[in-house]
């Protein structure tokens, strides 16, 4: 977020301390703007007189993920969506090491795979829901108890439903993409199902609890994939 003419309030996601904010002096300047781009991996030092202050941050670029993803529309859209989701969903200064490592994985994928990184994003979002206490139960059918042929998820409970048990209620349920239960990465239609599935629970349980909608970047990614899937 811009602060004054040359500075910015940076939101950082760290492995040990979770989400952290700090004033990055000169972050908008010609010399430093490239480092302070969304999605970049930096080695950062945070300094403040008291622990609960905003403090200031100094960073050194370790990996230019933003520049590498910029040329690919999907890569950039996935990177922006993942960072915006992490920024909006996680509480500040609480460690989420697994989410951090998952995000690194997504960023590494979207640099080189573009659109094919979508299943990784969906898996990461499912992990994010689990870490925040809203995990989906995809182990067995909520109706029959069977672990076979799971095809839907209840939008109310987040539990899987098999094809046979869904019956006439199938239209009211969210489609469960096979790649979320361990099968191959699937195609764009399945990726869209995955985005709808995790998007529904993120919007209701994570962002809805704070009276906010899904981040604009996540909505734009969804629209982009919907257009491509038509």
């Amino acid at each position: 977020m811009r602060f004054g003419e040359g500075d910015a309030v940076a939101t950082l996601f760290t492995e040990a301390d979770g989400l952290f904010r700090g004033l990055a002096r000169g972050a908008q300047s010609r010399a430093h703007a490239a480092a302070w781009q969304t999605g970049n991996l930096l080695n950062v030092r945070w300094i403040a007189r008291l622990e609960d202050q905003l403090g200031s941050v100094m960073g050194e670029l370790l990996h230019p993920a933003a520049a590498l993803a910029m040329a690919d529309p999907y890569g950039l859209a996935i990177l922006s969506a993942a960072c915006a989701t992490a920024e909006g969903a996680l509480p500040e200064r609480q460690p989420y090491a697994a989410i951090f490592r998952g995000l690194l994985h997504v960023i590494a994928y979207c640099e080189v795979q573009g659109k094919a990184a979508l299943p990784e994003l969906v898996r990461w979002e499912a992990g994010l829901l689990r870490e925040l206490g809203y995990g989906l139960d995809l182990s067995a059918c909520a109706v029959s108890g069977s672990a076979d042929n799971l095809a839907y998820v209840s939008p109310r409970t987040g539990r899987a439903v098999s094809e046979e048990a869904a019956g006439p209620w199938a239209e009211r349920l969210l489609r469960l993409p096979p790649f979320l239960v361990g099968e191959s990465d699937g195609d764009i239609a399945e990726w869209l199902d995955g985005l709808r599935l995790t998007g529904h629970f993120l919007a209701r349980d994570v962002f809805g609890m704070r009276h906010r909608g899904l981040p604009a970047a996540r909505v734009l990614l969804m629209e982009k994939v919907e257009l491509a899937a038509k």
Partner: peptide, 15 residues
């Protein structure tokens, strides 16, 4: 501009 926001805007306009 060659920033994440600038590139996202370029892709959006291209679409």
């Amino acid at each position: 501009s060659a920033t994440v926001d600038g590139a996202a805007t370029s892709h959006f306009l291209t679409d």
